[in-house]
Design a binder for these strands. Structure first.
Lengths: 159, 159
DNA sequence: TATTGTTATACTCTATAACTATA
DNA sequence: TATAGTTATAGAGTATAACAATA
């Protein structure tokens, strides 16, 4: 149990925060932006974005997966998924083979080039994750993971 | 100490996740998107976005504040701050009075209309926060807060 | 009618580059 | 030279509306 005081007030002591720093959503948002922005820069050279890597990751693990399934997993709309898929296809990392069982649906497959990029990106992501949680003990790490997941799943359930 | 298993696998059991669900950044990101998207919809009627409310909040607590100070607090670039400020001024929620001491700088002040919107938005944000953490015990709440803050401050320090 | 994918469009948040005015 | 603000532009991620093709 740590009692040290951790606040954003220390960063800009000249500002009166008036309770804004009590808003958990603000900290989750700014922390997220910080990580994502850094990760984007690290992935830039291999022509993928963080979200594109996540899509690539699932396509590799689930050959022939449908866009609808990805939409459900990430809880984003189908046209949003399609935008990532289109970029990945344009760069030759993914191909879309129409299903023979249901000709409405397409099946997504990763290409050789896509696998190469995914492998490299996974290394960068692992490093990024390690750096992100380096300040936490292993118990704190698993607690943060558990609490974020709990909050997310509870919110996702509500619709 | 809870031992129940909380995973995203349960949401889409048909998908093989291959370790993607071990990536903490993914969960922070999707949780954030979920909250922000909801909050945006709730604030839509009063013509402000979540980030605009945060700016309004600090301007009210720090009358005459400079855009540079807001930039430092949020760790975003000056032109990004300016975009929010411009929207808020266009809607009559903020005014920009040039400083007499340093004529490069402007001082931001909230308007009466801005105060009305801020008050209403704070109620919505408080409700949103409560809903977000309703699934957590009070100890879990403060732990999540502490851990996010710790990770954020550690990452922010590194530059 | 319902589902899958697609296209077009728009909005939020963020960044970089280049500029003006002032210190 | 350095700082405050501004303008223009771009890119990532998200959404809604409307459509075609298929079931």
């Amino acid at each position: 149990m740590t009692t040290e005081l951790l606040t954003r007030q220390a960063i800009t002591p000249e500002l009166v925060l008036d309770g804004l720093d009590d808003v958990l959503g603000l900290h989750i948002g700014t922390a997220n932006t910080l990580f994502v922005t850094r990760l984007e820069r690290q992935l830039e050279a291999m022509k993928v974005t963080p979200k594109q890597v996540a899509i690539l990751w699932l396509v590799k693990a689930n050959p022939g997966v449908k866009q609808t399934d990805l939409s459900r997993f990430f809880k984003i709309e189908r046209p949003t998924v399609h935008q990532f898929v289109r970029s990945l296809m344009r760069n030759g990392f993914l191909i879309n083979e129409p299903s023979k069982l249901d000709r409405r649906a397409g099946g997504l497959w990763i290409t050789g080039e896509g696998e190469t990029v995914l492998s490299a990106a996974r290394v960068i992501i692992a490093e990024s994750e390690a750096a992100l949680t380096a300040c936490l003990s292993s118990h704190e790490k698993s607690e943060l993971y558990r609490l974020i997941m709990k909050v997310y799943l509870s919110a996702a359930q509500k619709g």
